[in-house]
Design a protein around this nucleic acid. Sequence first.
DNA 1: TTTTGAGTTGTTCGA
DNA 2: GTCGAACAACTCAAA
Length: 477
Amino acid sequence: MSNTRTIMWFRQDLRLQDNPALANAVACGEILPLYILDDVNPGEWKMGAASRWWLHESLSSLNESLGNKLWVLKGDPALLLPEFIAAHAITNIVWNRGYEPWQVNRDIQLKTNLSELCAVDSFNGAMLWEPWTNLKGDGTPYRVFTPYYKNSIKTPPERTIVNVKPQAIDICECTQPANKIDSLDLIPPVQWHLSLAQHWQPGEAGAFVQLEKFIDDGLANYKTGRDFPSLNTVSRLSPHLHFGEISPNQVWLTAMGQSANAPEHEIEHFQRELAWREFSYYLLYHFPSIPNQNLHSQFDRFPWLEDPQSLQRWQAGETGFPLVDAGMRELWQTGYMHNRVRMIVGSFLVKNMLNHWLDGARWFWDCLVDADLASNSAGWQWVAGSGADASPYFRVFNPHTQSLKFDGAGEYIKKYVPELKGLSGKDLHDPSSAPAIVLAGAGITLDKDYPRAMLDLKQTRERALEAYATIRKPKIS
DNA sequence: TTTTGAGTTGTTCGA
DNA sequence: GTCGAACAACTCAAA
């Protein structure tokens, strides 16, 4: 019988299965499972409102899986942990690594300091390939996805045995307050989160339900189906992955094992999308300033406009462009937005409105249940054109064209912008241009029941192209 | 060092 | 209605 007592420090790995740090801790002997809500170190990017709701639910679920023995603290781990280690006769502490800049810095420091008090070990629980692997021949990081991906898949993800949870976890019996998770104050005072609860099942079990659902309904038609927001063809695993309720290894290997149920190229396409998540983490790790600064510095000179009123209309889903508004309202109501629609509302904000991408990133950060510093930063910079593998300057999404192409029947629009359900065809996608008699028949008065289009697409597109031209590097003659 | 080909997700215009 | 080219120039990766 060993005399170890190991802190299993849960962070973004709120699961029992395929959890390397947990497996290691359990193998050593008695464990003390702990979560610390750290609002000190993340600075500006501390968790947003939707994420907090999710975290509350996910911690509750994890706590239940651990027989109600999860410890919960709030504050700076650098201050809390030494005291905690001493108070509970701890011999070891383990965790799975994080990759956000503030986490990396915090953990390096912690590892040094805690090593004087007990044994410390960290593991890879969140990545198929950790960011310091897969460098170019010259030792510098990739900035383009395709070569990064091609190089990455030469090495299969390290773990091949997943979906296993440790048997017979020996958990330290310590008394703690009954309402421990509530004490973190993760639930907003406004009852806004109630609508989130209708759409999601946070926690490890919920993650598996979602994975199965995707395998059954989405994977076989993933490549094309993923473009249509009214279809249930995307995985919707992002929040589960963000909080580590399921690991990318588990998802990757499960998908790979479906060749009897889905064509190979569909599976591969999904794996590519998982790799985009990896690439975002990779970029954030190697270019830690991307949450706030343009990866391509010529964008520092970009003539952004500041117009709080327009920004507010975009946020509220009252731009007068049905697909944009549907997306922004989906975000508000469900804490999520379909991928294609994210690109469209992003392009609208950044290119048609000429609003700085950071405002979009901040709004998403607060509203998304899958808010992830890596994916959010990389995604917004991609849309703006300032990031890696960026969208070319001339790619300005036309919300009407996109709407007709990807929500032709308007199912998605009608779901989130129900005041337009009396319209159909072209009029539904562009109510501002609909004949008066059609609008009257549908019971819509523009600017009363639904806003008139807040800008002119053609004119703002040209304005955007001009703005992009101003930051071109001067030609050497 | 130089060269070559490629680079997630689009739109518009003119034939 | 359909189709291909143009939309800049640059940077990246690899040979």
